[in-house]
């Protein structure tokens, strides 16, 4: 992995009024050119906030420190002009809810054209429209000529997300940050949209940061995975290693708590308790109150990320955990 697109180091985020409690603590991650990386975690784990901070999308009440370099260029603290020139052209974002991401008063064609023309002033309206049409074809929207002049309310959820993807790829970005892009969609539509996203990224050599809570989506899309819990990265590994030999007890708990599509259904193993909030972070390891392996050191000291084989995990017991017994699914 030579060509690093995004290099995040020691990202810290705090919000005004939180009395020094940080919502995101010391997050470091990298995404290489053409690579699909998944950031997994439950609500409140800091996965979306981290990515939004990088894009400069957090409100003024957020204090962001650390570094996030995109192709060597620092994004944290960068001027609005710098961020504007990058977002939508070199870095694009796809959000969960395609309806709120689109302007209800502009036709689809105008919205795609706008994304093209805002970064390329010399493209004529007619040319932009031609390219918008081609983009609709690229994202496999039927009857693109007719659809170009329609408005978001005339599209179904899956079609809207295709339009959002068309806008995201309009300027052939190097990196797409997709925040739960299929969570609002039905399974059959989700499968289509993920296939599309996978194909387009592969075709254009685009890096993809896929934020999701769905481990099934992770398994199908990602090459590498970062697992976040309570504002920190607790494990980073290749996708096969995450599912076969998860190093962190939280990752193991997530995998065990999933109902299976094969196997005899038996009692699920739930992770007891609830994730902490930034304001009620426990001492030591943030996961220790819910961890069945927790010892005294876990209650006192915050674990640092250590290497375990090819993975890294933030766990005091990483090496001494019993082997993870994988329940094999066959399809």
């Amino acid at each position: 992995m030579s060509d690093i697109l995004l290099d995040v180091r020691g990202l810290d985020i705090a919000f005004f009024g939180m009395a020094g409690q940080r919502s995101v603590r010391d997050v470091s991650l990298t995404i290489a050119r053409g690579e699909t990386v998944s950031i997994v975690g439950e609500s409140g784990s800091g996965k979306s906030v981290s990515m939004r901070a990088i894009m400069g999308l957090l409100p003024d009440s957020a204090y962001v420190s650390g570094s996030a370099k995109f192709l060597g260029q620092e994004l944290i603290g960068a001027s609005t002009a710098t961020l504007r020139s990058l977002t939508g052209s070199r870095i694009a974002m796809i959000f969960q809810d395609p309806l709120t991401a689109l302007n209800p008063l502009l036709s689809i064609g105008d919205q795609i054209s706008e994304a093209i023309r805002i970064h390329n002033r010399d493209v004529s309206r007619r040319e932009a429209r031609e390219r918008a049409l081609q983009l609709l074809r690229d994202v496999a929207i039927p009857f693109p000529e007719k659809r170009l002049d329609q408005y978001p309310h005339e599209f179904s959820g899956g079609m809207r997300q295709r339009v959002v993807i068309a806008i995201a790829i309009a300027n052939k970005p190097d990196l797409i940050i997709a925040d739960e892009p299929t969570t609002a969609l039905d399974v059959t539509v989700q499968a289509e949209v993920l296939d599309l996203l996978r194909r387009l990224c592969r075709q254009n050599g685009t890096g993809l940061a896929l934020i999701t809570h769905d481990l099934g989506v992770v398994a199908g899309m990602a090459e590498r995975v970062y697992v976040m819990y309570a504002g920190s990265i607790v494990e980073a590994a290749l996708v096969d290693d995450i599912f076969e030999r998860p190093a962190h007890p939280y990752t193991r708990g997530l995998l065990r708590s999933l109902p299976k599509m094969k196997d005899q259904a038996k009692r699920l193993e739930d992770i007891g308790g609830t994730p902490p909030t930034a304001a009620s972070l426990p001492t030591g390891c943030a996961f220790h109150p819910r961890c069945s392996f927790a010892t005294d050191v876990c209650r006192k000291e915050t674990p640092r990320l250590n290497s375990y084989g090819r993975s890294i995990a933030a766990c005091h017991l990483g090496g001494s955990l019993p082997a993870f017994e994988k329940e094999i699914e066959t399809a």
Partner: peptide, 19 residues
Amino acid sequence: SAVPVADPKVERRRQRIVL
């Protein structure tokens, strides 16, 4: 066939029925 399965090996092999 559209349900994502939490196993990368299964995901790589599977053939989806795309509607």
